[in-house]
């Protein structure tokens, strides 16, 4: 197996190659405004590091967020297009699950339940809760720190979202951003059928937006002439 993992759901642009036994290449750049510029060179770098040609890849895993839309799509369209060009499968991984897996692997959350909160901008966080086995309890949500249940936000919370709002998240834990290596090993475990402690496993490479586009249907047309009262029975 040669798995390429990549994630652009946060400020980190990260990729890794896993050969089924271990991670054989990983690279990360942190640049919240340059996912489009950075991702392809980061992938080229990890492939070179691993001594792997693109045609040798057998499977791709991509973080599906939730995350800021524009950056998130860079990873998704890259994974889908590469998989199509290579005739291999691309799987989606909830980026919060990968971060939860990373935290458990690093030992920053030991034993009990915890939450993952990443930065959703607009003073909100993407949030998911995990049980003591590291299995996600429900769909991720997007909400203001103040609206996170007190029991959750005062317990261990992993991720940039927690670090960013210490007044609400009083027990913020590392890591802050998801790394390609964790995503890769999570995906390899899940593919091997051992998804115990691995959130909710693998899905389709479909983005978790959680928010609708900011638009409202066109209203009545704007008038250019000032409204003038009409003498009798007209519109006023």
């Amino acid at each position: 197996m040669l798995l390429l993992a990549l994630d652009t759901s946060s400020a980190a642009i990260t990729a890794a190659v896993h050969d089924g036994r271990e991670v054989v290449g990983e690279a990360t750049r942190v640049d919240a405004r340059a996912h489009g510029e950075r991702l392809a060179p980061v992938i080229a770098q990890v492939l070179a590091q691993a001594g792997v040609r693109p045609a040798e890849l057998t499977v791709i895993a991509v973080g599906v967020g939730p995350g800021p839309f524009t950056g998130l799509r860079v990873g998704l369209v890259t994974a889908r297009t590469m998989a199509y060009a290579l005739g291999i499968q691309a799987y989606g991984v909830c980026s919060l699950d990968a971060l939860a897996w990373q935290a458990r692997g690093d030992g920053t959350v030991a034993g009990g339940p915890f939450a993952v909160a990443t930065d959703a901008r607009r003073r909100e966080v993407y949030l998911a809760q995990y049980d003591s086995d590291g299995v996600r309890r429900d769909r991720p949500d997007v909400l203001r720190p103040a609206d996170v249940a007190e029991a959750v936000r005062t317990g261990p919370v992993v991720g940039e979202g927690a670090a960013r709002y210490p007044e609400w998240f009083t027990d913020a834990r590392a890591p802050r951003l998801v790394g390609g290596a964790a995503l890769a090993s999570y995906a390899v475990e899940a593919l091997a059928g051992d998804a115990r402690g691995a959130g909710r496993g693998l899905g389709e490479p479909v983005p978790m937006y959680l928010r609708r586009p900011d638009v409202s249907p066109a209203g009545a047309r704007k008038r250019v002439l000032p409204e003038t009262p009409v003498a009798s029975g007209g519109r006023s």
């Binding site: 996912h35 369209v77 060009a85």
Partner: peptide, 20 residues
């Protein structure tokens, strides 16, 4: 449109990288 352009540019890079 910035976000729209980015999808095409990322897809093109994925092809260029994969097909060398």
């Amino acid at each position: 449109l910035a976000g729209a352009l980015l999808v095409g540019v990322a897809a093109a890079k994925a092809l260029a990288l994969t097909l060398d």
